[in-house]
Structures are given as C-alpha cells and as structure tokens.
Amino acid sequence: GLTEEQKQEIREAFDLFDTDGSGTIDAKELKVAMRALGFEPKKEEIKKMISEIDKDGSGTIDFEEFLTMMTA
C-alpha cells in the first residue's frame, strides 16, 4: 500500500491538474497536465487515457481513479 506521504503527494498532483476545483479531472485538464509534463497528446490519446482510467464511465477522472493510475 501507499504511505500517507505518498498519498498526499498524489493528492497535490491531482489538485494541480483539477484546475477548476471540481474534484475530477476532465479531458481538457488532463491535456493541460500532460503538456506541463512535456507531452503533446492528441485528442484521441487523451480520450483513450481517460477511458482506460475512468472505471465508472463518467468521462472524468476522480481521485480514486487517479490514485489507481499513479500506482499501477
């Protein structure tokens, strides 16, 4: 499992990506986040990433899903 410290770091990354503070990361926010990390993702790639992570089919990534992605 994760230490509380690791969870906190992932939470901070999540909050950075969640620019509108909605508690979820949408495609637009993910794209901005990827760019910040030096990637140039295409729209299809973003969609694919979200569909792989987005277990509940909401079209957005919540913290639990993000946590799973970061620790996979």
Rank of each mutant, 00 (worst) to 15 (best):
D54W: 07
K55N: 10
A27Q: 05
E65H: 07
T3N: 07
E52S: 13
I10L: 14
I10G: 01
I50S: 02
I53E: 03
M34V: 04
E29K: 10
M69P: 00
M69Y: 15
I50A: 03
G59P: 04
R11Y: 03
A72P: 09
T71A: 14
M70V: 14
Q8M: 11
G23D: 02
E12F: 09
K55Q: 11
G1L: 10
P41I: 14
G59N: 05
F63I: 06
G21C: 11
G59W: 05
F63L: 04
L30T: 01
T24K: 07
I50E: 03
A13S: 05
E44Q: 09
F14Y: 01
A13M: 14
P41C: 15
A36V: 11
I46F: 09
F14W: 04
G1H: 14
Q8V: 08
K48M: 09
G38E: 03
M70L: 13
I61P: 00
D15I: 08
S22L: 03
E65F: 09
M69V: 10
K28W: 11
K55V: 10
L2A: 04
E40W: 09
R35N: 10
T68H: 14
G1K: 12
M34S: 02
R11M: 03
F39P: 01
K7E: 06
K31R: 10
E40H: 13
L37E: 02
L30S: 01
E9L: 14
G38Q: 02
T71W: 07
T71M: 10
D26T: 11
E52I: 14
D54Q: 06
M70F: 11
K7M: 11
M34F: 05
E52A: 11
G57L: 09
G21V: 02
A72H: 14
G38D: 03
S58Q: 06
E29Y: 12
G21Y: 04
G1I: 13
T71G: 08
D15L: 10
P41E: 04
D18H: 02
R35M: 08
K28N: 14
D62K: 09
D15E: 08
Q8K: 09
E40Q: 10
G21M: 05
S58H: 06
T60R: 10
L2M: 09
I46D: 04
M49A: 05
L16Y: 14
G23Y: 01
T68W: 13
Q8P: 02
M34L: 13
K48H: 11
K7Q: 06
D26M: 06
E64L: 08
F63N: 00
T19D: 04
D62S: 15
K43D: 15
K43W: 15
T71D: 05
S58M: 07
V32N: 15
K48I: 08
S51V: 05
K43M: 15
L30C: 05
R35V: 11
K7Y: 13
L37H: 05
T71P: 02
F63R: 01
F17P: 00
G23W: 02
G59F: 06
F14Q: 01
A72W: 10
R11W: 05
Q8C: 12
F14H: 00
E29M: 13
E45H: 11
M49F: 04
T19K: 10
T24W: 09
D20Y: 04
F17Q: 03
S22T: 11
A13V: 14
D26W: 05
M49K: 06
K31Q: 12
S58W: 06
D56W: 07
S51T: 10
F63C: 01
R11N: 01
D26A: 07
L37R: 03
E64G: 06
E52R: 12
I53C: 11
D54P: 04
T60Q: 12
E9R: 15
G38H: 02
G38M: 01
E45N: 08
E52N: 11
I61H: 00
D54I: 10
K47Q: 14
M49D: 02
F66C: 01
T3A: 05
A27W: 12
F39G: 03
D26P: 11
I50G: 03
V32G: 15
I25E: 00
E45G: 06
E4H: 08
K47I: 14
I53Y: 15
G23I: 01
I61F: 12
A72D: 12
E40S: 09
T68M: 13
T24M: 05
F63M: 02
A13Y: 11
E52Y: 14
E4N: 10
D54G: 10
K48G: 05
A36K: 13
E52D: 11
I53A: 12
D56L: 11
T60D: 11
S51R: 06
E4P: 11
I61C: 01
E45L: 14
E45P: 02
D62N: 14
A72R: 12
I25K: 00
E52L: 14
F14S: 00
K31P: 05
K48R: 12
T71E: 12
D54M: 12
I25V: 03
E65S: 11
S22N: 12
E12P: 01
T68C: 11
G57H: 10
I61Q: 00
D54A: 10
I61S: 00
M49R: 07
T3F: 03
K31D: 15
E52M: 14
S22A: 04
G59Y: 07
E65Q: 15
